[in-house]
């Protein structure tokens, strides 16, 4: 049986919808981490997951869009990855700083920011 030529569609096949649903699910997993975990590092992990969901959207719209040869979606995702890396570095440095001061990384314990 020639596997590659076996053509079947799950109804409509893989459309842009499926990618958008995947990215929405990933975004909401990140949102759960940001809103429901009591740990600053996991909040940062959640933000990274949400940024990755945005990247999936950029690439999916690039792939399915009208002018893929313009590469706009890929370039946007590239810049987004760079900015996310910088954000992770600064955020983790801030977490270390706050941990040294408060001896905890539970965000609800960060009651005051001065001194």
């Amino acid at each position: 049986m020639n596997f590659a030529n076996l053509s079947f569609d799950f109804g409509v096949g893989i459309t842009l919808h499926t990618y958008l649903v995947l990215s929405a699910a990933l975004f909401c997993i990140g949102l759960v981490a940001v809103l429901a975990r009591r740990n600053a590092i996991l909040v940062l992990v959640g933000i990274e997951l949400m940024l990755s969901a945005a990247n999936i959207n950029f690439i999916a719209f690039w792939r399915f869009g009208a002018h893929p040869e313009e590469m706009v979606g890929v370039l946007f995702a590239l810049f987004s990855i760079a900015v996310a890396a910088g954000e992770a570095a600064v955020g983790l440095a801030l977490i270390i700083l706050v941990y040294r001061h408060y001896k905890t990384i539970n965000p609800s314990q960060f009651r005051s920011l001065n001194g």
Binding site: H17, A24, C28
Partner: peptide, 20 residues
């Protein structure tokens, strides 16, 4: 806080699904 967080995330997910 945890239940509210999960609830808000589920609401956002449903809103995204419906709009998609």
């Amino acid at each position: 806080g945890r239940f509210a967080g999960v609830g808000v995330s589920l609401a956002v997910f449903l809103a995204l699904l419906i709009s998609v």
